Simulated scan of single mutants.
Amino acid sequence: MKGKAGRQSHKATNTFVFRGFGEKVRALRVSARKYLLQRPQNTEGENTTFIYEAVCKAKDLNVTQEFKTFLRELGNEIQTTGQLVIHENHIASCISTHISNPETSALQPVCDVLVAFANDLPQEFYSKHFYNFLPKLIVHLSMKDPEVIETVFLCIVSLFVVLQKYLYEDFYTLYHVNKFSHLLSKSYPWYINELAAQSLGVLVRKIPKQKLVHFYVPEKTQER
């Protein structure tokens, strides 16, 4: 009986944590759209990059050794769009290395840097990097830590918003070719199914219904 009570308590706690995710997604969509329209400027009034701003902000919030190492490897050539174009592959490789570490204590700020990078170079990021990063993010969903799971899904939703122009046109690639639909299957816990569905909702709402018919998943694959 004690074990059963413990499981019920754990599920109740998870339900409380994950029910709030939908509200965060809704707030995130609003803030992300505003974010897309407001390119940051430096003190001289010149445009700076989103990734530079994200790094500056994260420095004040995360002082772990992992993040310090990440910043050292990332380098300083991230302040202008021209620098990002030149060092694009190095930046992507650096973020990939650190976001792939399942034990990292700097997941949140690295995810923020990832989204900012996508925001600076959306077309290049989508065509060259998005589908390389997506499975690296999804790997973290095997963790039982609600904070890690929420961080990953909020990162994914942010990328959906930043890259929505390309994802609307190529939803099939996301949903089937790269198997995001798998997150809705019984292979994953119920709460991953729910968060994946809420994340997809950011895109699905604006895709014509007649087009969505092609992405229908048989009901048996949705069973939990």
Rank of each mutant, 00 (worst) to 15 (best):
residue 132 N to A: 10
residue 120 D to P: 10
residue 125 F to L: 04
residue 148 V to E: 11
residue 124 E to H: 11
residue 120 D to C: 12
residue 130 F to H: 00
residue 133 F to H: 06
residue 135 P to A: 00
residue 135 P to Q: 04
residue 133 F to K: 04
residue 148 V to N: 07
residue 124 E to S: 14
residue 132 N to Y: 09
residue 138 I to T: 09
residue 121 L to H: 07
residue 124 E to I: 07
residue 133 F to R: 01
residue 144 K to V: 12
residue 130 F to I: 00
residue 129 H to Y: 15
residue 126 Y to C: 05
residue 130 F to G: 01
residue 127 S to R: 13
residue 140 H to Q: 07
residue 144 K to T: 14
residue 127 S to Q: 14
residue 132 N to R: 12
residue 124 E to W: 06
residue 145 D to E: 15
residue 125 F to K: 00
residue 117 F to T: 03
residue 121 L to W: 07
residue 143 M to L: 12
residue 143 M to S: 15
residue 120 D to W: 09
residue 135 P to T: 04
residue 124 E to Y: 06
residue 117 F to I: 01
residue 122 P to I: 05
residue 146 P to M: 06
residue 122 P to K: 00
residue 141 L to W: 08
residue 146 P to R: 06
residue 141 L to T: 13
residue 130 F to W: 01
residue 130 F to A: 01
residue 129 H to W: 07
residue 140 H to L: 03
residue 132 N to C: 08
residue 138 I to W: 05
residue 141 L to I: 14
residue 145 D to Q: 10
residue 131 Y to L: 04
residue 143 M to E: 14
residue 122 P to W: 10
residue 141 L to A: 09
residue 142 S to R: 15
residue 143 M to K: 14
residue 118 A to V: 09
residue 128 K to Q: 14
residue 117 F to K: 13
residue 148 V to Q: 09
residue 118 A to F: 05
residue 134 L to N: 01
residue 123 Q to S: 13
residue 138 I to L: 14
residue 135 P to N: 04
residue 125 F to M: 04
residue 127 S to E: 12
residue 135 P to R: 05
residue 119 N to C: 15
residue 146 P to Y: 09
residue 139 V to L: 11
residue 119 N to L: 12
residue 125 F to W: 06
residue 130 F to N: 02
residue 119 N to K: 15
residue 129 H to F: 14
residue 141 L to K: 04
residue 135 P to E: 02
residue 148 V to K: 15
residue 120 D to K: 08
residue 137 L to D: 01
residue 142 S to L: 13
residue 119 N to T: 15
residue 144 K to Y: 12
residue 133 F to I: 00
residue 122 P to G: 11
residue 119 N to W: 05
residue 142 S to A: 13
residue 125 F to S: 01
residue 141 L to N: 07
residue 148 V to C: 13
residue 139 V to H: 13
residue 141 L to C: 07
residue 124 E to D: 12
residue 138 I to V: 15
residue 143 M to F: 11
residue 147 E to N: 14
residue 134 L to P: 00
residue 139 V to Q: 15
residue 121 L to Y: 07
residue 147 E to I: 13
residue 141 L to Q: 02
residue 148 V to Y: 10
residue 128 K to M: 03
residue 144 K to L: 14
residue 137 L to E: 00
residue 139 V to I: 14
residue 135 P to D: 02
residue 147 E to P: 05
residue 128 K to L: 12
residue 124 E to P: 05
residue 118 A to Y: 02
residue 147 E to M: 12
residue 119 N to P: 05
residue 148 V to H: 08
residue 140 H to E: 04
residue 117 F to C: 06
residue 125 F to N: 00
residue 146 P to T: 09
residue 124 E to L: 12
residue 128 K to G: 03
residue 121 L to T: 11
residue 134 L to G: 02
residue 147 E to V: 13
residue 138 I to R: 09
residue 135 P to W: 05
residue 139 V to T: 13
residue 145 D to M: 08
residue 138 I to F: 04
residue 120 D to I: 10
residue 145 D to Y: 07
residue 148 V to I: 15
residue 131 Y to M: 04
residue 123 Q to W: 07
residue 139 V to G: 05
residue 146 P to A: 10
